[in-house]
Computed example of a mutant assay.
Amino acid sequence: MATVASLSFPAITQSSPERKIASRNLLSDSNAFKLPTTFSLHSISFRASNPNSNSRFVVHCMSSTTSDPPPPVAETKLKFLNAYKRPIPSIYNTVLQELIVQQHLMKYKKTYRYDAVFALGFVTVYDQLMDGYPSEDDREAIFQAYIKALNEDPQQYRADAQKLEAWARAQNAASLVDFSSKTGEVEDILKDIAERAGGNGSFSYSRFFAVGLFRLLELSNATDPTILEKLCAALNINKKSVDRDLDVYRNLLSKLVQAKELLKEYVEREKKKREERTEPQKANEAVKSYLAENLYTRK
């Protein structure tokens, strides 16, 4: 799996030209992580994609998990912003806001049901996105705020992702696909997914699920392209959908690398400019100090 380049930088203001370039490049081809709307982080409202329209609307979804109506997207976003109030560098925040909207819509579908492969996919995407974040503690705090805003358990996400990763490392291409003939906690999870996806229960395929499958293949060193096809067949998942979403995921990682490199160059230029501005000040201070010392000596 591609790894996002690690770098550290301070928050960039909305007005910086590099920020606009980075965000544009990052999201232009990533349709799976982009919604046909724009939103305001301050008003927590949605605006129609038509720039000449002043109408606002609230997205509602149907859910079978509760008798209460599902919350609007704006409420989920507000919960996230209230839980983590520190500024987030724009390159991270742009994608995080896109993801939380998308995951809200997944969560409140009638067919949604949490599963460990979905959790592994989201954790994989999140860790790749936040790789190189200035503070490791803040990175985890943002994760906690994000999952809790969706009324889910961040500890469960982490625990299930680690469980599946440990299991996958102990597998090979053959044993990974042959989960249905074996017993074990992870095998039972995969059997349950296969049964529900086959029509015997609620199952909602998602892009995070596709990334979770990819992560299982990666950790088990199942590099043969036919293994993904066999695994999808065993799980009753449409492989064409998985292929499409994995292409978008790889493209997202590539765009993240490009955007972070642009931002890194911007930060380095700004740092150099600040250093250049301080040089004359230091020279003036040295001259003043020299003159003061000599005048004092002469007196």
Rank of each mutant, 00 (worst) to 15 (best):
Cys232Leu: 01
Pro69Cys: 04
Thr38Lys: 06
Gln14Thr: 11
Gln156Asn: 07
Ile189Ala: 10
Asp178Tyr: 05
Met106Asp: 14
Gly184Leu: 04
Leu235Asp: 11
Tyr126Arg: 04
Glu279Met: 05
Lys182Leu: 13
Ala168Trp: 12
Lys110Ala: 13
Ser181Thr: 12
Thr13Val: 02
Asn236Thr: 04
Arg113Pro: 00
Asp160Arg: 12
Pro87Lys: 03
Ile12Thr: 15
Lys230Trp: 01
Gly198Arg: 00
Leu41Thr: 14
Asn238Gly: 04
Arg269Glu: 14
Leu217Ile: 09
Asp131Ile: 06
Ala2Val: 09
Leu262Phe: 11
Asp137Leu: 08
Lys77Tyr: 14
Ala83Met: 03
Ser204Ala: 10
Leu231Pro: 09
Tyr126His: 06
Tyr296Leu: 05
Glu275Gly: 11
Ser45Pro: 00
Ala210Ile: 01
Val267Asn: 12
Val101Lys: 03
Arg113His: 05
Leu253Phe: 00
Asn25Ile: 03
Asn31Cys: 06
Glu218Lys: 11
Ala283Cys: 01
Val117Thr: 13
Leu263Val: 15
Asp247Val: 02
His42Pro: 00
Ile88Gly: 07
Pro70Ser: 15
Thr223Asn: 15
Leu295Gly: 15
Tyr133Thr: 06
Asn151Cys: 05
Thr278Val: 03
Ala149Asn: 07
Asn200Leu: 01
Ser180Gly: 04
Asp160Val: 06
Asn93Lys: 04
Ala286Gly: 09
Asn50Thr: 02
Ala32Ser: 13
Tyr249Thr: 08
Asp68Leu: 06
Thr223His: 10
Ser64Pro: 00
Tyr146Glu: 09
Ala48Met: 03
Ile189Pro: 00
Ala141His: 10
Arg158Asp: 07
Val73Phe: 06
Tyr92Lys: 00
Ala210His: 03
His60Gln: 07
Pro10Tyr: 11
Arg244Ile: 01
Lys272Gly: 04
Ile227Lys: 09
Gln155Trp: 02
Thr226Phe: 07
